[in-house]
Write a protein that binds this DNA or RNA. Structure first.
Lengths: 232, 232
DNA sequence: CGCTCTATTGATAAACCTCAAATACAGTGG
DNA sequence: CCACTGTATTTGAGGTTTATCAATAGAGCG
C-alpha cells in the first residue's frame, strides 16, 4: 500500500529514485518518517535547525520567509512529487524558509545521514538533485528579474501563468487552480499588497478573464492572460 | 607555473577540487581551456547553447539577464575562485544569463563530458557542487525577499554591504570596493534606476558615509551603513 | 447568530520612474 | 597640450504607480 502510494507520485523529482536499486529504494523508504499534515500546519520553521529533508507525496507546501517587520514572502510552492529542505540538510544550516501545508498533505522525511550516504554511494542521485536545484535557481532568478523590471499587473499575470502550469486543472469553465489561493497569497507571491492584488483581479474578473470565489481562482481566458504577459 | 596560479586561488568553491586525486586534478586542468578576457568582454551570451562550465581564476564576471525591453538585470557577480555556468552544462540547456568580464579576467573552462565524468566518479564533488548551488539559491532568495519588501534605499545599502563582503578592501580612508562599479551597475543590481541610485549615493556622500569617483566607491563609515540596513 | 478570516473599494500620500538637460571625466588622435 | 568624443554622473520637474489607511461587505464555521 505504501508502495502504491509512492509509485503513484509522478514528477521529475521523484525520478531521483528511479535509477537506484531495489535495496536502496527500500532503505530510503524504510528510513523515512512519514507525516500527515492538516491544512495550514507547519512542517518546519525558518530558523529551526534542520534535520529532515522531505518528499511531498500528497498535497502542497508553501515555502515562505518572514521579514523582520513580519511581512511574509512566498518563495515557492512545493507540489506533490517534489522535494524540499535538501538545502538545510546538506549545508548543515537552519531552515532558511518556513514550510506550511496549504491543504491536507503527506510527506516523507529522511534525515541527514541517510540522504548523505545515499548520495555518496550513488553519484547519479547527487547529480540528479543538482539538476533539480539548478532549475529552482533558474526559476527564482527569473522571478527576480521580473520583480526588478515589471509592473505589478504583469507580475500577477505571470504568477497566475506559473500556477496554471503547476496546479492548473482543466474544467468546462476554464483552468481552475487546484490550490487554496487567497488574494494575500497572490500578493505575497508577487511582491505587492493585498489591495493591489485584489484590484487587479477584480478588474480581470470584470472583463471576464477570470472567475473567482473565496481562495479559489479559475482562469476563463488563459490565452488572454498569456498574451498579456507577452505583450508588455 | 600554471599550477602555481591555480593553487593561489583561494575560495570555498575552489575546494571543490581539494578532495580529488592528483590524477583527477591533472585531468581537470589538462582538459580545461583557458581564456584571457579583456575588460568588458563577453564570455558567453544568454541563450547561447552551453558547452563550457567555468572557474574564474582572476578578475570578476558579471552575470546579467536582459529583458525583452533591453533592460539589464544583474543576477550576480562571480569572483575569482568561483564557478559559473555549471547549470547550463548539467541541465543541457542554453545559458540563462550573460557573463561579462568587468576587468581583466582569466578563466578555465571544462566541457560537459569532462565535468560529468568527474562527478560521476566522485560523488564528493557532486555533493560539494550541490552545496555551492544551494548557497547561491539562498542568496537569490534573500535578495528576492528584500526586493519584495524593502524600499530602494535599504536595498542599495544591502547591495553595498554585500559587495563589501565579496570585494571589499580595507584602506586608510575606509573600505574600498575593488571592482569597477557604476551607478548603472548598482541600479541594475538593486532593481532601481540610475537616477534613483545616483540620488541616494549623492546623499550618502554628502553625509560622509561614502566617497566616490567615477565607477569607484569607498565606504567611509561601514558601520553607519550596516546600522542603516538593520534599523529599518 | 456572532466570530473570524477574506475580499473589496475609495481616498490619500509616498516612493519612485521618466524625461530632459547640464556637467564631469577619461581616453584618443591630432 | 588641446579639442573632441563617448561615457558617467548629477539634478530638477512632473507624472505614474503603488502602498497605506480606513471602512465595509461577504463567507464560512462553530
Amino acid at each position: 500500500m505504501k508502495k502504491d502510494k509512492i509509485e503513484s507520485v509522478e514528477s521529475q523529482e521523484f525520478d531521483i529514485f528511479k535509477n537506484i536499486t531495489k535495496e536502496h529504494y527500500n532503505m530510503v523508504i524504510k528510513s523515512g518518517s512519514r507525516e500527515n499534515l492538516k491544512p495550514r500546519s507547519i512542517l518546519f520553521h525558518q530558523g529551526d535547525s534542520a534535520k529532515y529533508c522531505y518528499l511531498v507525496e500528497k498535497g502542497h507546501l508553501k515555502l515562505t520567509k518572514l521579514t523582520e517587520q513580519g511581512r511574509e514572502v512566498i518563495i515557492r510552492y512545493i507540489n506533490s512529487g517534489e522535494l524540499t529542505a535538501a538545502m538545510a540538510v546538506l549545508n548543515d544550516k537552519d531552515y532558511p524558509v518556513t514550510a506550511e501545508s496549504i491543504e491536507k498533505t503527506e510527506v516523507v522525511g529522511w534525515d541527514k545521514p541517510t540522504i548523505l550516504s545515499i548520495m555518496k554511494k550513488n553519484s547519479d542521485i547527487a547529480i540528479k538533485l543538482l539538476s533539480i536545484v539548478f532549475e529552482r535557481l533558474d526559476e527564482v532568478q527569473n522571478r527576480y528579474m521580473e520583480l526588478c523590471t515589471e509592473k505589478v499587473e504583469q507580475r500577477v499575470a505571470r504568477t497566475l501563468a506559473r500556477l496554471i502550469k503547476t496546479s492548473g486543472l482543466k474544467t468546462v469553465h476554464g483552468i481552475c487552480l487546484d490550490i487554496p489561493l487567497s488574494r494575500q497569497n497572490i500578493a505575497d507571491y508577487t511582491g505587492t499588497t493585498v489591495f493591489t492584488a485584489s484590484r487587479i483581479l477584480s478588474e480581470w474578473e470584470k472583463i471576464g478573464w477570470i472567475k473567482s470565489e473565496r481562495e479559489k481562482i479559475t482562469i476563463v481566458k488563459p490565452h488572454a492572460l498569456i498574451n498579456f504577459v507577452k505583450d508588455f
